[in-house]
Simulated scan of single mutants.
Amino acid sequence: MTSVGLLYPGHSAEDDYPRIAVLLDSDIRLPVFHTDIGEDAHREDALIEMGSAARLAAGVEELRLAGAESLVWACTSGSFIRGWEGAQQQIRELARTAGLPASSTSFAFVHAVRALGAARVAVAATYPEDVTESFAGFLRAGGVEVTAARASGIVTAAEVGTWGRGEVLELARAGDDPRADAVLLPDTALHTAAYLGELEAEMGKPVLTANQVTVWEGLRLAGRRAWADELGTLFARPDWDRSEWKPEEDERAERDGRE
């Protein structure tokens, strides 16, 4: 049994996680612990407050008591908005508070892009333009080349949570770039788990989504591999040698706040 504890702000698309757990069809648990979202707004000051140490710490004790082996702050904008160094400090504090290896969805995207060997990515975001550019800047700070970044201008997670298959597919289509090796959809308020196979078939390339990479990151920190073709290329059973994948090295980096 492997248990990945997820700190999730508010209530929007957290039902993606039990869906992912079922698709993994294994002894993997993905318990979700909700944090207080505060003001629901994709705006810099509100996002910084959403990811404050006090708000995150409030959910950590319950997570620890549930027997989690790793912890992921399941929020993209509430981490990258602090910049690379600020986001590292955020997960350092989480790791110290919980006594567990910790990460966030923002770092999950960077690690997943590296794992896929994608040289260039396109960003298809629900966010306003300034927040989308902050995410693109975070990726660049992590060594990821961003060829295009499309903003949808949605202000609240509540609205994003109402989007269904049609809106998700259209978002990916609009944000794709022929120069990109992968398309990134960076909002954990967006339901995507049910559409990953269709998204990749439509794009003809790997698609990484926030809730998908969040789970992958938690499993990586726990040293657990899992496969599910329905969850896209990131979870596809490998037909190449990944023997050099060393999660313990990245775990130490996250504990220390280094890359």
Rank of each mutant, 00 (worst) to 15 (best):
R19W: 11
G197L: 10
A148I: 11
C75I: 01
G10F: 01
D176S: 15
E61Y: 08
D27Y: 07
A95S: 15
L184W: 04
A189L: 06
A124F: 05
S70V: 02
A95M: 05
A180E: 06
V123W: 05
K246F: 09
F80Q: 03
R179F: 10
V160K: 03
G164H: 09
E49D: 15
L169R: 12
Y127M: 10
V146R: 07
G10V: 04
A118C: 15
F135E: 04
T188N: 12
E39T: 15
P186R: 06
N211G: 04
A172F: 07
Y17F: 15
W227T: 09
I81F: 02
R173H: 15
R140T: 15
V4C: 01
G166C: 09
N211F: 03
I154F: 10
G67F: 04
A158V: 08
R255P: 02
A46P: 05
V160H: 04
A21H: 03
L196A: 05
E14G: 03
P18L: 01
N211Y: 03
A54M: 06
D181Q: 11
R29Y: 03
G204V: 10
A141R: 12
S77P: 03
V144S: 12
S3F: 04
A98T: 11
E251W: 06
W245Y: 09
W227D: 11
V4F: 00
R224P: 09
R120Y: 07
A41E: 10
D45M: 13
T233D: 08
A124E: 06
L231F: 12
E39Q: 14
E248T: 14
W240S: 11
A189G: 12
R29K: 08
E62W: 05
A58M: 10
G117I: 04
T162G: 14
A201E: 13
L219H: 02
R120H: 13
G175Y: 02
I37W: 01
A172K: 02
P178Y: 07
H11V: 12
E217C: 09
A124W: 01
G5T: 00
R43Q: 15
D241F: 09
